[in-house]
Design a protein around this nucleic acid. Structure first.
Lengths: 197, 197
DNA sequence: GTCTATAGCCGGATAGAC
DNA sequence: GTCTATCCGGCTATAGAC
């Protein structure tokens, strides 16, 4: 058993992740992390050589953890339409519950250098895109599955990204933030579009 | 005429905007702005009482400028299907050309407090959402126009948000970043969905 | 593995000369 | 309207005791 008043790397990262999610790399100081963890700054530097390394370790932990769950969602081999509906429901749930994850991939997309963008691509998007493009190819082989995958994933994520702003928008209602309502809507829209044919 | 070696508020903001877009509020120092403008920090404080005020002035300028263009795109009264296609083309063009704008609304959505989110809602999203919801109601009155508007706008923006990461993703091609290709794809997808009916 | 103490730099902000 | 010079607090990071 680990002593109660010492902290492992994982303890530190678990507390640092929500800070980075809410304020970004430059908005979080080693002091603020140390305070949250309940140690001094010097203790953090015992575990990590510098702030960047701590940050990268935090991103890696978040992304690798999530990768597994996102892969599972799409790996079943049931009928395509049902698989799409199930994916939408599960994906909406994951994104709704883990707001930190959502914000971090957004921040990495904007702030990441080459190596961080590569981590994001391989650890977060690879399996997700693979699954969605496969699904799209089964459902509608005539459209470009790559463009479809981006559209579908983006369509879903935007509902959660815009959530903080939407209360100040006209005609916004509580139900528009309900992951189940969103999942039903995007499934329907993806399958049928605007039904103007 | 203004002397050549003095700077107006607008000059300062025009140079500060790309800095804030690329690095965020806490990633940009008054020193870095001063250097880019070619004055000392003290000169900046002659024009703005503090960093926050300068930042807010920058956001307001970006957003109010853009509001007009986005409103125009949707105000025509041609046939709905054609209006959607035209909107997609124009919207993709605007988002593609003004990357700073794109990143700033993204950052504001994540970092903004209540008053900044309200600015974002009224100055950027209000006209855009109004136009798109109207259009959706004409095209398919049976679906919730609010949810449709979020899906459609998000679907488009995600293509540009993910652009920096996509080079590291499997099967990515140059053409997937072409605004005209994206516009054609999203128009088609929005109108017909996955055509599985 | 954590602490205290501190180095050294960079941040926002101001005073007062020109 | 811009400058030089400066204040002071917060920042990353390190040294050395326990």
């Amino acid at each position: 058993m680990r002593p109660l008043n010492t902290k492992s790397k994982e303890d530190i990262l678990a507390l640092a992740i929500p800070l980075f999610a809410r304020s970004g790399y430059s908005g979080v100081s080693m002091r603020s992390i140390a305070q949250k963890v309940g140690v001094t700054v010097a203790a953090l530097y015992h575990h990590f050589p510098d702030k960047q390394t701590l940050y990268l370790a935090a991103m890696t932990q978040v992304f690798v953890d999530k990768d597994e769950r996102l892969g599972e969602i799409l790996s079943s081999s049931i009928e395509p339409k049902k698989r799409l509906a199930q994916f939408m429901t599960s994906f909406c749930e994951v994104v709704d519950k883990d707001n930190d994850f959502c914000m971090l991939i957004q921040r990495e997309m904007m702030d990441g250098d080459e190596s961080r963008l590569r981590l994001l691509a391989t650890e977060v998007y690879h399996d997700l895109f693979q699954g969605v493009t496969n699904l799209c190819q089964e459902l509608d082989p005539k459209q470009d599955p790559y463009l479809l995958a981006i559209s579908i994933i983006g369509m879903v994520m935007y509902h959660f990204q815009t959530a903080p702003m939407r209360p100040y928008l006209a005609h916004s209602k509580e139900q528009h933030s309900d992951p189940q309502v969103i999942a039903r809507h995007v499934t329907n829209f993806a399958l049928q579009g605007l039904k103007t044919g």
